[in-house]
């Protein structure tokens, strides 16, 4: 089964989970909002992973590379557990909508990341360019 773990400093993770569920109706999304209370993050992560089977495919989406949240997932990475940082909505959506019968290989994940990166756009300039072609 494919599982998504979204983790962030405070409640971005919870918000992204809700947005993702609204846009895609994906199940199996687990949000970890770190540092909202004094509970150790390691413990929250352990609790989520304890619900998973050994052959589950796990996609972890975190807020930023350098953050302690992302660091804490580093030991969990393997062939079936993928850690992705700097997540945005297009990235989470593309992964959530990926057909579950096609395994998320490193090559496929790389492609999704390239596409979702390109969705971050300075719209002021984007719009101006579009205007030139318009008429």
């Amino acid at each position: 089964m494919r599982r998504f773990v979204i983790a962030s400093h405070h409640e971005f993770a919870l918000g992204l989970k809700k947005t993702l569920e609204f846009l895609t109706r994906t199940g199996h999304v687990y949000a970890i909002s770190a540092y909202v209370d004094s509970k150790p993050l390691e413990k929250s992560i352990e609790e989520v992973f304890s619900q998973f089977a050994r052959d589950d495919e796990v996609i972890i989406l975190t807020d930023m590379l350098q953050g302690s949240v992302n660091q804490k997932f580093y030991p969990y990475m393997n062939d079936r557990v993928h850690l992705i940082c700097g997540v945005n909505v297009p990235c989470a959506m593309a992964l959530a909508l990926y057909p579950e019968d096609e395994a998320l290989t490193p090559e496929r994940i790389r492609r999704v990341l390239e596409e979702s990166r390109s969705q971050m756009i300075y719209v002021n300039e984007y719009k101006n360019q579009a205007d030139e072609d318009d008429e």
């Binding site: 350098q66 953050g67 992302n70 660091q71 580093y74 030991p75």
Partner: peptide, 12 residues
């Protein structure tokens, strides 16, 4: 080594 490697992700 694992904790050290994870923390190195934070290198500015």
């Amino acid at each position: 080594p694992v904790k050290k490697e994870s923390m190195r992700l934070g290198k500015p």
